[in-house]
């Protein structure tokens, strides 16, 4: 960090104190709902839920046991991890590959191609035409790749990456060209090592998006064993609820409902894995990589 040289002026110190204080308050404000959910998920079943508790009188893991005992959780987890890893890898690679040419001013038809991709951000067929294209024209119904390919490039994110590339010094590319390298080599050997922060960002966004996705899984797969975790969890919550349109139907009158505690436990199970990813990605947010490659 660049603060090695700070002259500890009183103003500076005061700022630091307030800053840290502010951060602490921020954390308290933000952690409250997760804390509340965590407590709810640990609440034993003999505790009434209409009374509010900060910490429940009886704590138990039974909610988690019930969620995890669902037959499909294991499959859901594996499917989600698989899709997240493969999807993120391909997406990030593809987005970088697309952003780089668009960032170069001499890319032929640059304005046209930029318009070409931006247009798709606004005009799309909608749920049914997309579904029909993917399933019938491209034959992806029921295939693992339907989770990866349609969402391969998030244009929005890709453009941010493009702008990041545009902010890199032109000399970087030029020094590579002087040495006779082709564009691909320049990209791989020169640009990417310096772009770790944006790569990490793209990876993070992509991973979270894949991890949280469930709608496509629902549309294209009918076998419960092929569903992703989020859908399995959604179903657990819905299986245990009957606030659907069918109130009064005899069958609904016989079903027993999952309490709120199960909902809380499923949210925790869904959220914790992906939240833990950030600390690992953090180390790629490292400073000053641009400098190194310019010197000499």
């Amino acid at each position: 960090m660049q603060r090695r040289f700070i002259k500890p002026t009183p103003g500076s110190r005061l700022f630091d104190i307030f800053n840290h204080l502010f951060m602490v308050l921020l954390c308290l404000a933000m952690i409250y709902p997760i804390f509340y959910l965590a407590m709810l998920s640990l609440t034993a079943s003999d505790v009434p839920l209409t009374k509010g508790y900060l910490i429940p009188p009886h704590v138990s893991l039974e909610n988690y046991a019930q969620v995890m005992s669902n037959h499909y959780i294991g499959y859901g987890f594996v499917n989600a991890v698989r899709r997240t890893l493969v999807g993120t890898a391909f997406s990030v690679a593809m987005m970088l590959l697309t952003a780089y040419p668009l960032s170069k001013k001499y890319f032929p038809g640059r304005r046209f191609w930029t318009g070409f991709v931006v247009f798709t951000m606004f005009f799309s067929g909608g749920m049914i035409p997309t579904y029909l294209t993917n399933s019938q024209v491209l034959g992806l119904d029921g295939s693992f790749w339907v989770l990866i390919l349609p969402g391969l490039i998030n244009t929005y994110n890709m453009l941010i990456a493009r702008n990041f590339f545009m902010g890199l010094p032109e000399e970087l590319t030029e020094s590579g060209r002087i040495d006779g390298a082709g564009e691909l080599r320049i990209l791989l050997a020169l640009i990417l090592p310096v772009s770790l922060p944006i790569i990490a960002t793209l990876a993070l966004w992509s991973a979270v998006s894949h991890w949280n996705a469930w709608f496509d899984s629902m549309l294209y797969f009918s076998d419960p064993k092929q569903q992703v975790l989020q859908l399995v969890l959604r179903r657990i919550v819905l299986e245990g609820s009957d606030d659907m349109m069918n109130l009064g139907s005899a069958a609904d009158e016989m079903t027993t409902v999952n309490p709120e505690t199960i909902k809380a436990a499923t949210t925790m199970v869904a959220t914790i894995p992906i939240v833990l990813v950030y600390p690992f990605v953090q180390k790629y947010f490292v400073k000053g990589m641009v400098v190194g490659s310019l010197k000499g």
Binding site: F123, G125, E183
Partner: peptide, 24 residues
């Protein structure tokens, strides 16, 4: 060489974005 880098993207957009656009 730059254009080639961009080709996969073109394919992607045509297949997955422009093809369904007929649905508009």
């Amino acid at each position: 060489s730059l254009v080639m880098l961009f080709l996969p993207a073109i394919l992607y957009y045509i297949l997955f974005k422009y093809l369904p656009i007929f649905g508009v």
